[in-house]
């Protein structure tokens, strides 16, 4: 089974700050890490590989510095990694990112399964997985919290929504986005860390993939971010109810009404 796992590098959660002047995320000097949901996707891929054989290929789009996160994924025991990287890809929104990743997956070729985290923790859109599926013309399951291999080309994915639980049978090739409930990602190990540096990280540019210049980077991104800001902190109001239970209940009911 040839599995591609899409991963994104995000700032370490406890180090994210917003520049009050520009309202943008301060990214400089912050160690990037694999988006946590994507680690669940890597773990799922490694378990499927253990069951069905094959290989796990990590795929990301971003600057050279993203290699450190791909290396982290390789140290979890993925087989190889691909980074699509070029200045022309900068400023991509979810549509342009989805297009670029889909083209890379086509270039990798003969992919049975594409796994991604359900969303990134820095942008929270949850759109890239479905967009990749749409570009590839593949069936998709989003928000999977369990994945099991029913046969060589059939997967059953369970997704829990607000009011229903769905068991979805999907034939491969397919795209699945996963929740954190799916598994507990393994640690990198000291030996795998060393060996990750012997594994291939292929870097492709927009020309390697023959990408349409109108569909990548800022040119291919209809989303325009006008500002990013931290929600205003609202002070909590505290009311002390009367000590007499009857009066307290009456007052509480009045407030709730």
């Amino acid at each position: 089974m040839k599995i591609v796992v899409g991963i994104k590098q995000v700032p370490q959660a406890d180090s994210v700050k917003i520049d009050p002047q520009t309202n943008n995320l301060i990214r400089s000097g912050i160690q990037g890490v694999i988006n946590p949901f994507d680690k669940n996707a890597i773990e799922a891929a490694l378990r499927l590989r253990a069951q069905a054989g094959g290989e796990v290929i990590l795929l990301s789009m971003g600057p050279d510095s993203y290699v450190t996160s791909l290396r982290d994924g390789l140290a979890m025991d993925a087989d190889q990694a691909v980074l699509v990287s070029s200045r022309a890809l900068g400023g991509a929104d979810t549509l342009a990112t989805g297009y670029t990743l889909a083209k890379a997956i086509e270039a990798i070729g003969d992919v049975d399964l594409v796994l991604l985290g359900r969303q990134s923790v820095d942008a929270d859109t949850g759109q890239v997985g479905p967009i990749v599926a749409a570009y590839l013309g593949l069936p998709q399951v989003t928000f999977a919290e369990s994945i099991s291999l029913e046969s060589a080309n059939t997967i059953i994915a369970k997704r829990q929504l607000d009011t229903v639980i769905q068991d979805i049978k999907v034939t491969t090739p397919a795209v699945i986005t996963v929740r954190s409930e799916l598994n507990r990602p393994r640690y990198e190990t000291p030996v795998n860390i060393k060996q990750s540096f012997d594994k291939a990280v292929t870097v492709w540019s927009e020309t390697d993939l023959n990408l349409d210049p109108e569909q990548i980077g800022q040119a291919g991104s209809p989303t325009k971010v006008t500002s990013v800001y931290a929600p205003e902190k609202k002070g909590r109001q505290t009311t002390t109810l009367p000590t007499d239970p009857t009066q307290a209940v009456v007052e509480l009911l009045n407030k709730l009404n």
Binding site: T68, R71, D72, A75, Y187, E188, T189, P190, I193, K194, S196, F197
Partner: peptide, 13 residues
């Protein structure tokens, strides 16, 4: 880079 990854792994563990 390898040492940084080892330290990070040990910190997480």
């Amino acid at each position: 880079d390898q040492n940084r990854m080892l330290i990070q792994m040990v910190k997480e563990f």
